[in-house]
């Protein structure tokens, strides 16, 4: 149970970072932390007491494996996270080029 709560703490940390920090790079780090908390949680949900890794090798018997499906799904979700993060970082660099700052309180051309 404690592990799940730690996951929740990690997720909240990420959300806090997104909401509270003023530096764009820190916000991006917050997104990454929150995303990894969800991924970690997904893996933990699939864990079984004393389970072993779901790899079929020659001569092995299929017994007491953890659920392999979430691991495949998490891989997909990591790839999506990679694409999002790369795009966010590229946008952040462009923002720095245009505004000369990473501080979101100084970047507010859009209002209304």
């Amino acid at each position: 149970m404690a592990v799940y709560l730690l996951c929740l703490v990690l997720f909240s940390l990420g959300i806090y970072c997104i909401l509270r920090k003023r530096n764009i790079i820190k916000i991006i780090v917050g997104v990454i932390i929150a995303e990894y908390a969800v991924n970690l949680f997904f893996i933990l949900v699939a864990y079984r007491m004393g389970g072993r890794s779901p790899i079929l090798s020659e001569g092995a018997t299929i017994k007491n494996m953890v659920d392999p499906l979430p691991q495949a799904l998490v891989l997909t979700s990591i790839v999506i996270g990679l694409a999002t993060t790369a795009l966010l970082v590229a946008i952040a660099m462009k923002i720095y080029e245009k505004y000369g700052t990473f501080d979101i309180t100084k970047i507010k051309e859009l209002k209304g």
Binding site: A83, A86, V89, A90, M93, E97
Partner: peptide, 16 residues
């Protein structure tokens, strides 16, 4: 490469 080059050439491409 795009992220590395972005600083040098302001017009360089930005891809997913």
């Amino acid at each position: 490469v795009a992220l590395v080059l972005l600083k040098l050439k302001p017009t360089s491409e930005k891809k997913k």
